[in-house]
Amino acid sequence: MALLEVKNLGISFGGLRAVDEFNVSIEKGELYGLIGPNGAGKTTVFNMLTGVYKPSKGVITLDGENITGKSTRDINRAGIARTFQNIRLFKEMSVLDNVKVGLHNHYKYSTAEGVFRLPRFFSTEKEMDKKAMELLHVFELDDKADFLASNLPYGDQRKLEIARALATEPKLLLLDEPAAGMNPNETVELMNTIRFVRDNFDMTVLLIEHDMTLVSGICEKLSVLNFGQLLCQGKTSDVLNNPEVITAYLGE
């Protein structure tokens, strides 16, 4: 059974059918890419998968659990974490705190225990610090843990967003244009990071990307969206050589 099963997913805004009949099935541990021209509905699919938009039709199943139409919060708790196309960090908080917000649901103590500084506050905070630093270490951000998130260079902000998403211990990680605005070196570094995350965190990754180096470099399977419709689906090499995909998206 696939980790993520999406069947006949569709959404309309007013009269506009933004996404229609979208099907995808992602196995555990896969690196899956979602590509297509601008305005094809890629981010809309992400927003439906994470509960930002409620799909007008279709069913989304994560690990056997039907998560269609659930709230963003419940979907995250069910096991989907995401990053955003336009980075959404907690800007006025430290890098460490950004990750600790991600850990929120896994390390608990009550508000009263926090206000009165009871023993559980200290022990839990210590565990959180340790776990957060481990995550930051993976992304080579541990020496910047005290920086304000908004003061990080662009590439690091992207990495921090991934670290924060991973902190929620998801089963499926959605990356919305992770390489946007990165130079070729940073992109290569990012590709290694994504591979590392998949291998070491046992993660399944679904990503939207325009950077073909990254897509052809790490994605094992691809879906191509065009005008809200699935154009093609399958192994990366097959999809990228598909004449329809070449006309619609890649160009001759």
Binding site: N76, R88, L89, F90, M93, K100, V101, H104, G114, V115
Partner: peptide, 30 residues
């Protein structure tokens, strides 16, 4: 109370909501 509140798990969640409520929801917070 105020300082301890701000620098606790709850306070961190509150600051996260202030900074970006969409992202806060996406990491599973109420």
């Amino acid at each position: 109370i105020s300082y301890n509140y701000i620098n606790s798990r709850t306070g961190r969640a509150v600051k996260a909501i202030r900074d970006n409520s969409i992202a806060t929801e996406s990491v599973g917070l109420n």
